[in-house]
Design a protein around this nucleic acid. Structure first.
Length: 257
DNA sequence: AGGTGTTTATTTGTGG
DNA sequence: CCACAAATAAACACCT
Protein backbone atom coordinates (compact mmCIF):
# COMPACT_ATOMS: atom_id res chain seq x y z
CA UNK A 1 0.00 0.00 0.00
CA UNK A 2 1.41 3.38 -0.93
CA UNK A 3 1.80 5.74 1.96
CA UNK A 4 -0.37 8.88 1.89
CA UNK A 5 1.17 11.76 0.00
CA UNK A 6 3.84 9.58 -1.48
CA UNK A 7 3.54 7.60 -4.65
CA UNK A 8 4.26 3.92 -4.52
CA UNK A 9 7.27 2.45 -6.19
CA UNK A 10 5.24 1.23 -9.09
CA UNK A 11 3.69 4.62 -9.69
CA UNK A 12 7.00 6.36 -9.96
CA UNK A 13 8.37 7.19 -13.32
CA UNK A 14 11.50 5.17 -13.97
CA UNK A 15 14.63 7.28 -14.40
CA UNK A 16 15.11 6.20 -17.97
CA UNK A 17 14.49 8.06 -21.18
CA UNK A 18 12.39 6.48 -23.90
CA UNK A 19 15.58 5.96 -25.85
CA UNK A 20 17.20 3.98 -23.08
CA UNK A 21 14.03 2.00 -22.40
CA UNK A 22 13.84 1.10 -26.06
CA UNK A 23 17.51 0.23 -26.23
CA UNK A 24 17.11 -2.00 -23.18
CA UNK A 25 14.23 -3.83 -24.79
CA UNK A 26 16.07 -4.35 -28.05
CA UNK A 27 19.25 -5.51 -26.36
CA UNK A 28 17.37 -7.94 -24.19
CA UNK A 29 16.12 -9.80 -27.22
CA UNK A 30 17.80 -12.80 -28.73
CA UNK A 31 18.08 -11.31 -32.19
CA UNK A 32 18.80 -7.79 -30.95
CA UNK A 33 15.74 -6.53 -32.74
CA UNK A 34 12.07 -6.27 -31.83
CA UNK A 35 8.83 -5.22 -33.41
CA UNK A 36 7.15 -2.20 -31.89
CA UNK A 37 4.58 -4.25 -30.03
CA UNK A 38 7.30 -6.22 -28.25
CA UNK A 39 9.08 -3.04 -27.22
CA UNK A 40 5.83 -1.89 -25.64
CA UNK A 41 5.47 -5.27 -23.97
CA UNK A 42 8.99 -5.24 -22.53
CA UNK A 43 8.50 -1.81 -21.01
CA UNK A 44 5.08 -2.55 -19.58
CA UNK A 45 6.19 -5.83 -18.04
CA UNK A 46 9.12 -4.28 -16.26
CA UNK A 47 7.84 -0.83 -15.41
CA UNK A 48 4.34 -0.65 -13.96
CA UNK A 49 4.37 3.13 -14.46
CA UNK A 50 3.97 2.50 -18.18
CA UNK A 51 0.89 0.35 -17.78
CA UNK A 52 -1.13 3.54 -17.78
CA UNK A 53 -1.48 6.38 -20.22
CA UNK A 54 -0.31 4.06 -22.94
CA UNK A 55 -1.53 6.34 -25.71
CA UNK A 56 0.71 9.12 -24.51
CA UNK A 57 4.00 7.36 -23.94
CA UNK A 58 3.67 5.02 -26.90
CA UNK A 59 3.25 7.99 -29.19
CA UNK A 60 6.41 9.45 -27.68
CA UNK A 61 8.22 6.20 -28.10
CA UNK A 62 7.27 5.92 -31.76
CA UNK A 63 8.43 9.48 -32.20
CA UNK A 64 11.78 8.47 -30.76
CA UNK A 65 12.10 5.46 -33.01
CA UNK A 66 11.58 7.54 -36.10
CA UNK A 67 13.40 10.63 -34.97
CA UNK A 68 16.59 9.13 -33.62
CA UNK A 69 19.18 7.79 -36.01
CA UNK A 70 20.27 5.28 -33.40
CA UNK A 71 17.25 3.16 -34.23
CA UNK A 72 17.06 1.37 -37.53
CA UNK A 73 14.20 -0.45 -39.17
CA UNK A 74 14.70 -3.98 -40.38
CA UNK A 75 12.05 -5.32 -42.72
CA UNK A 76 10.43 -8.62 -42.02
CA UNK A 77 11.32 -11.57 -44.17
CA UNK A 78 8.47 -13.47 -45.76
CA UNK A 79 8.93 -16.19 -43.13
CA UNK A 80 8.43 -13.65 -40.33
CA UNK A 81 4.81 -12.61 -40.65
CA UNK A 82 3.48 -9.86 -38.43
CA UNK A 83 2.85 -6.15 -38.24
CA UNK A 84 5.47 -3.50 -38.86
CA UNK A 85 9.21 -3.84 -39.07
CA UNK A 86 11.76 -4.91 -36.53
CA UNK A 87 13.61 -2.17 -34.71
CA UNK A 88 17.29 -2.52 -33.95
CA UNK A 89 20.12 -0.34 -32.71
CA UNK A 90 22.39 1.23 -35.27
CA UNK A 91 25.70 -0.61 -35.05
CA UNK A 92 27.59 2.69 -35.00
CA UNK A 93 25.88 4.12 -31.95
CA UNK A 94 27.89 1.99 -29.57
CA UNK A 95 27.15 2.50 -25.93
CA UNK A 96 24.98 5.59 -25.91
CA UNK A 97 24.87 5.74 -22.14
CA UNK A 98 28.49 5.16 -21.22
CA UNK A 99 28.34 8.07 -18.83
CA UNK A 100 26.10 6.01 -16.62
CA UNK A 101 23.11 8.25 -16.96
CA UNK A 102 20.22 6.60 -18.68
CA UNK A 103 18.26 9.78 -18.42
CA UNK A 104 20.29 11.87 -20.73
CA UNK A 105 22.85 10.98 -23.33
CA UNK A 106 26.05 12.89 -23.64
CA UNK A 107 25.42 13.57 -27.24
CA UNK A 108 22.73 12.80 -29.74
CA UNK A 109 23.69 10.07 -32.18
CA UNK A 110 23.61 11.52 -35.65
CA UNK A 111 24.16 9.63 -38.82
CA UNK A 112 26.72 11.17 -41.19
CA UNK A 113 25.21 13.55 -43.63
CA UNK A 114 23.89 11.91 -46.79
CA UNK A 115 25.98 12.33 -49.89
CA UNK A 116 25.68 15.86 -51.18
CA UNK A 117 23.27 16.46 -54.01
CA UNK A 118 24.78 16.14 -57.45
CA UNK A 119 25.18 19.35 -59.38
CA UNK A 120 22.09 20.30 -61.30
CA UNK A 121 22.10 19.32 -64.93
CA UNK A 122 20.35 20.99 -67.80
CA UNK A 123 17.02 19.57 -68.81
CA UNK A 124 16.92 17.60 -72.04
CA UNK A 125 16.51 19.81 -75.05
CA UNK A 126 13.17 19.18 -76.66
CA UNK A 127 14.54 20.26 -79.99
CA UNK A 128 17.07 17.43 -79.91
CA UNK A 129 20.01 19.77 -80.14
CA UNK A 130 22.34 18.23 -77.58
CA UNK A 131 21.96 15.36 -75.21
CA UNK A 132 24.37 14.26 -72.59
CA UNK A 133 25.21 11.10 -70.87
CA UNK A 134 26.05 11.63 -67.21
CA UNK A 135 28.52 9.74 -65.09
CA UNK A 136 26.80 7.81 -62.37
CA UNK A 137 29.11 9.05 -59.64
CA UNK A 138 30.60 12.28 -60.86
CA UNK A 139 27.33 13.65 -62.12
CA UNK A 140 29.35 15.24 -64.91
CA UNK A 141 28.50 14.87 -68.59
CA UNK A 142 30.51 12.09 -70.19
CA UNK A 143 29.22 11.99 -73.74
CA UNK A 144 27.13 14.17 -75.92
CA UNK A 145 25.11 13.29 -78.96
CA UNK A 146 22.59 14.78 -81.25
CA UNK A 147 19.61 12.51 -81.21
CA UNK A 148 17.83 11.86 -77.93
CA UNK A 149 17.86 8.15 -78.53
CA UNK A 150 21.28 7.95 -80.11
CA UNK A 151 22.75 6.67 -76.89
CA UNK A 152 25.60 4.29 -77.22
CA UNK A 153 24.39 2.72 -80.40
CA UNK A 154 20.87 2.25 -79.22
CA UNK A 155 19.52 3.32 -82.52
CA UNK A 156 19.63 0.42 -84.89
CA UNK A 157 19.91 -2.05 -82.04
CA UNK A 158 16.52 -1.63 -80.56
CA UNK A 159 14.18 -4.36 -81.55
CA UNK A 160 10.53 -4.95 -81.44
CA UNK A 161 9.60 -7.64 -79.04
CA UNK A 162 6.89 -9.20 -77.01
CA UNK A 163 6.67 -7.44 -73.70
CA UNK A 164 6.66 -9.77 -70.73
CA UNK A 165 3.74 -9.42 -68.34
CA UNK A 166 4.09 -6.49 -65.98
CA UNK A 167 6.69 -4.72 -68.07
CA UNK A 168 6.45 -1.52 -70.01
CA UNK A 169 8.00 -0.26 -73.20
CA UNK A 170 11.45 1.16 -73.00
CA UNK A 171 9.92 4.46 -74.02
CA UNK A 172 8.82 4.69 -70.42
CA UNK A 173 12.34 4.06 -69.31
CA UNK A 174 13.57 6.77 -71.58
CA UNK A 175 11.25 9.34 -70.13
CA UNK A 176 12.27 8.10 -66.72
CA UNK A 177 15.86 8.76 -67.65
CA UNK A 178 15.00 12.30 -68.58
CA UNK A 179 14.75 11.96 -72.31
CA UNK A 180 11.77 13.22 -74.24
CA UNK A 181 9.79 10.78 -76.26
CA UNK A 182 10.34 11.19 -79.97
CA UNK A 183 7.86 13.35 -81.75
CA UNK A 184 9.09 12.51 -85.18
CA UNK A 185 10.26 9.51 -87.14
CA UNK A 186 13.62 8.23 -86.18
CA UNK A 187 15.94 5.83 -87.94
CA UNK A 188 14.96 2.22 -88.07
CA UNK A 189 11.40 2.75 -86.96
CA UNK A 190 8.22 2.84 -88.89
CA UNK A 191 5.56 5.43 -88.48
CA UNK A 192 4.90 6.27 -84.89
CA UNK A 193 1.49 5.88 -83.52
CA UNK A 194 0.21 7.25 -80.25
CA UNK A 195 0.70 3.75 -79.00
CA UNK A 196 4.44 3.65 -79.16
CA UNK A 197 5.68 0.23 -80.27
CA UNK A 198 7.52 -1.65 -77.59
CA UNK A 199 11.21 -1.97 -77.93
CA UNK A 200 14.05 -2.61 -75.58
CA UNK A 201 17.36 -1.18 -74.63
CA UNK A 202 20.67 -2.92 -74.11
CA UNK A 203 21.47 -3.18 -70.43
CA UNK A 204 24.86 -1.64 -70.91
CA UNK A 205 23.30 1.58 -72.13
CA UNK A 206 21.21 2.02 -69.05
CA UNK A 207 24.23 1.77 -66.82
CA UNK A 208 25.74 4.86 -68.27
CA UNK A 209 22.91 7.21 -67.64
CA UNK A 210 21.94 9.14 -64.65
CA UNK A 211 18.27 8.76 -64.01
CA UNK A 212 16.09 11.69 -63.27
CA UNK A 213 12.58 12.07 -62.13
CA UNK A 214 10.43 13.43 -64.85
CA UNK A 215 7.13 15.16 -64.54
CA UNK A 216 4.74 12.93 -62.72
CA UNK A 217 7.19 10.08 -62.55
CA UNK A 218 8.57 8.69 -59.31
CA UNK A 219 12.22 9.45 -58.70
CA UNK A 220 14.59 6.65 -59.53
CA UNK A 221 16.83 5.93 -56.56
CA UNK A 222 20.44 6.79 -57.29
CA UNK A 223 22.69 3.78 -57.30
CA UNK A 224 25.18 3.88 -54.48
CA UNK A 225 27.29 0.89 -55.31
CA UNK A 226 30.28 1.13 -57.64
CA UNK A 227 28.50 -1.23 -60.00
CA UNK A 228 24.88 -0.28 -60.21
CA UNK A 229 22.43 -3.08 -60.56
CA UNK A 230 19.27 -2.98 -62.54
CA UNK A 231 17.36 -2.96 -59.32
CA UNK A 232 18.91 0.25 -58.12
CA UNK A 233 17.76 1.88 -61.31
CA UNK A 234 14.25 0.58 -60.87
CA UNK A 235 14.63 -1.76 -63.80
CA UNK A 236 14.23 -5.42 -64.29
CA UNK A 237 15.81 -7.73 -66.77
CA UNK A 238 13.76 -9.32 -69.49
CA UNK A 239 14.27 -11.17 -72.72
CA UNK A 240 13.17 -9.76 -75.99
CA UNK A 241 10.73 -11.93 -77.78
CA UNK A 242 12.69 -14.10 -80.15
CA UNK A 243 15.73 -11.85 -80.25
CA UNK A 244 17.64 -13.42 -77.41
CA UNK A 245 19.09 -10.12 -76.29
CA UNK A 246 19.16 -9.16 -72.64
CA UNK A 247 17.16 -6.02 -72.13
CA UNK A 248 15.42 -4.10 -69.40
CA UNK A 249 12.01 -2.89 -68.58
CA UNK A 250 10.84 -0.52 -65.96
CA UNK A 251 10.14 -2.34 -62.75
CA UNK A 252 6.39 -2.73 -62.19
CA UNK A 253 6.68 -0.98 -58.84
CA UNK A 254 7.54 2.23 -60.65
CA UNK A 255 4.51 2.13 -62.86
CA UNK A 256 2.05 4.94 -62.58
CA UNK A 257 -1.45 3.93 -61.60
C1' DA B 1 -10.62 1.36 -37.84
C1' DG B 2 -6.50 0.53 -35.67
C1' DG B 3 -1.48 -0.18 -35.69
C1' DT B 4 2.64 1.56 -37.48
C1' DG B 5 5.68 5.14 -38.91
C1' DT B 6 7.01 10.08 -40.11
C1' DT B 7 7.15 14.71 -39.33
C1' DT B 8 6.59 19.29 -37.24
C1' DA B 9 5.93 22.17 -33.40
C1' DT B 10 6.11 23.29 -28.72
C1' DT B 11 7.25 22.70 -23.94
C1' DT B 12 10.01 20.90 -20.25
C1' DG B 13 14.22 19.34 -18.15
C1' DT B 14 19.26 19.04 -17.58
C1' DG B 15 24.07 20.19 -17.57
C1' DG B 16 27.68 23.36 -18.27
C1' DC C 1 21.34 31.79 -18.57
C1' DC C 2 22.03 29.17 -22.67
C1' DA C 3 22.25 25.14 -25.58
C1' DC C 4 20.63 21.04 -26.28
C1' DA C 5 18.21 16.62 -25.09
C1' DA C 6 13.96 14.73 -24.04
C1' DA C 7 9.01 14.71 -23.63
C1' DT C 8 4.69 15.75 -25.36
C1' DA C 9 1.13 16.76 -28.69
C1' DA C 10 -0.69 16.39 -32.95
C1' DA C 11 -1.36 15.91 -37.92
C1' DC C 12 -0.95 12.82 -41.36
C1' DA C 13 0.37 8.79 -44.57
C1' DC C 14 0.32 4.07 -45.28
C1' DC C 15 -1.22 -0.55 -44.79
C1' DT C 16 -4.01 -4.47 -43.46
Amino acid sequence: MPRPGKSSYSEQKPPYSYISLTAMAIQSSEEKMLPLSDIYKFIMERFPYYRENTQRWQNSLRHNLSFNDCFIKIPRRPDQPGKGSFWALHPACGDMFENGSFLRRRKRFKLPRPTPALPPRPPPDPRHAHYHSYGLHSGQPTHSFKHPFAIENIIGRECRGVMPPGSVPISSVMSQLGYPLPTQLWPGMGALSSDFPPFSLPVKSIYHHQPSSGQGMPAVPMPIKPTPTLGTLGLQRCQDGGQGKTSCTLHPSLLLP
